[in-house]
C-alpha cells in the first residue's frame, strides 16, 4: 500500500437520520490527500450534514466513516485538530479585533501564543487583510469576513480545509478574490472539501465531485467527465415567452438529443448548437432570444434530477 493513496476521508454507506427522515442516505466516497473534492447539490440535499459528520461534530446513525484513518466516534478532538472549518454562516468574534480572532482561535488547538501571533500575521497577508489587523470585525465587508474566516481555519495548518458554501452571498468580485485564494491553497497541496450549489464554483475549484440530491449520490466524477457522461457538448437556449415554450418544445421534439422545458426557456441538447439553430429557423419557429453555450454542471444536475440547482 503506497502512503500517497491512503484516503484522508473514507465514507461507506454513511447515513444520518433525524427521526424517520434520512438527511444522508447511505453515501460512499473516498477523498485522497491533496484533492479538491466537492459536494454539489441543492439546499437541503444533505451536504451540510455530511460536512458536520466529517467534521466530527455530528454522529452518524449508520455506515462507516474514517477521517485521517480515525473514527470520529472515538477520535473527535483528534480529527478536529487536523481540520480547518469554514462554516456557511460566519461565526467570527465581533467583540475582538481582526488579528485577535486568529490568535484566540489558534489557542483552541493548543498552539502557544507566540506561534499563534506569527501565523496570524502570515495568514492576514495571505487573506490580503494586513492593513485590517487592528480593525473591528464588523467594519469588514462580507468578502473580507469570509477571507478572515478562511484565515482562521488555517491557523492550525490543517490537513483538510472544509468549506460549506464558501461564496454564498458574496458579490462576483469578492467571489473571484476568494476563489483565487482557495486556488493557491490547492496548489500548495491542501486537501479541500467544499459544498456548493453554484456550478461555476464547482467547475472552478473541484478536481472531483459528487452530485447529491435527497441525501444520495446521483453521480461522481470530474466536472468535465460528468458533463461528457451526462450531457451533450452544447446547449441551445430558446425563449418563446412563458405561455408558448411548451408548444414550441413539442414541435422541436426530435431535432436535438434531448429537449427540456423550463418555465422560462427551452433547452436543446446537441453536439452542434449553430447547426441546430438553423434547423429551428427552417421549422419556422421564431424565438424571442436564442443562445448557444457549452454544457455545464447545471445541465448535468437537471438531467440527473429533473430539477434546477437554484430554485
Amino acid at each position: 500500500m503506497s502512503p500517497v493513496s491512503t484516503p484522508v476521508i473514507s465514507a461507506a454507506g454513511l447515513t444520518k437520520k433525524f427521526g424517520d427522515l434520512a438527511a444522508v442516505d447511505g453515501i460512499d466516497f473516498d477523498v485522497p490527500p491533496g484533492e479538491a473534492f466537492g459536494l454539489l447539490g441543492p439546499n437541503g440535499a444533505g451536504k451540510s450534514t455530511t460536512m458536520r459528520m466529517i467534521g466530527a461534530v455530528s454522529t452518524r446513525t449508520g455506515g462507516d466513516l474514517t477521517v485521517l484513518g480515525l473514527d470520529p466516534d472515538g477520535y473527535g478532538p483528534e480529527i478536529r485538530s487536523q481540520l480547518g472549518v469554514v462554516p456557511q454562516e460566519d461565526n467570527l468574534d465581533t467583540e475582538l479585533r481582526v488579528r485577535d480572532n486568529l490568535i484566540v482561535y489558534g489557542r483552541y488547538f493548543g498552539i502557544d501564543r507566540r506561534t499563534c501571533a506569527r501565523r496570524a500575521d502570515e495568514l492576514l497577508e495571505f487573506a490580503q487583510l494586513e492593513d485590517k489587523a487592528r480593525s473591528k470585525v464588523d467594519d469588514l465587508s462580507g468578502g473580507m469576513k469570509r477571507r478572515l474566516t478562511i484565515a482562521r481555519a488555517l491557523i492550525n495548518e490543517p490537513r483538510i480545509l472544509m468549506l460549506d458554501e464558501p461564496t454564498t452571498g458574496l458579490d462576483p468580485q469578492a467571489r473571484h478574490v476568494l476563489w483565487d485564494r482557495l486556488f493557491r491553497l490547492k496548489e500548495r497541496g491542501t486537501t479541500l472539501v467544499l459544498t456548493t450549489h453554484y456550478m461555476d464554483e464547482a467547475e472552478q475549484l473541484c478536481d472531483r465531485l459528487v452530485v447529491v440530491d435527497h441525501g444520495r449520490i446521483m453521480a461522481e466524477g470530474s466536472p468535465a467527465s460528468l458533463i461528457r457522461e451526462h450531457s451533450s457538448r452544447e446547449v441551445v437556449e430558446l425563449r418563446f415567452g412563458s405561455d408558448r415554450n411548451a408548444d414550441a418544445a413539442a414541435r422541436l421534439e426530435g431535432t436535438a438529443d434531448r429537449v427540456e422545458v423550463l418555465p422560462d426557456r427551452v433547452l436543446l441538447y446537441t453536439a452542434d448548437g449553430e447547426a441546430l439553430l438553423e434547423r429551428v429557423a427552417h421549422l419556422g419557429l421564431r424565438p424571442t432570444t436564442s443562445l448557444v453555450r457549452r454544457s455545464s454542471l447545471e445541465d448535468v444536475f437537471l438531467r440527473l434530477t429533473g430539477r434546477s440547482l437554484i430554485e
Partner: peptide, 28 residues
C-alpha cells in the same frame, strides 16, 4: 498510520486544557 498518529499527538493539549482556552477567550 502517520496522519492518525499526528492527529492523536495534536489533540493532547486541547483534550487536557480545552476549558482553559475557552475561559481565556471569554475573559478577553
Amino acid at each position: 498510520e502517520p496522519m492518525s498518529l499526528a492527529a492523536i499527538d495534536a489533540a493532547q493539549r486541547p483534550r487536557r486544557f480545552g476549558a482553559l482556552y475557552v475561559a481565556e477567550h471569554q475573559i478577553r
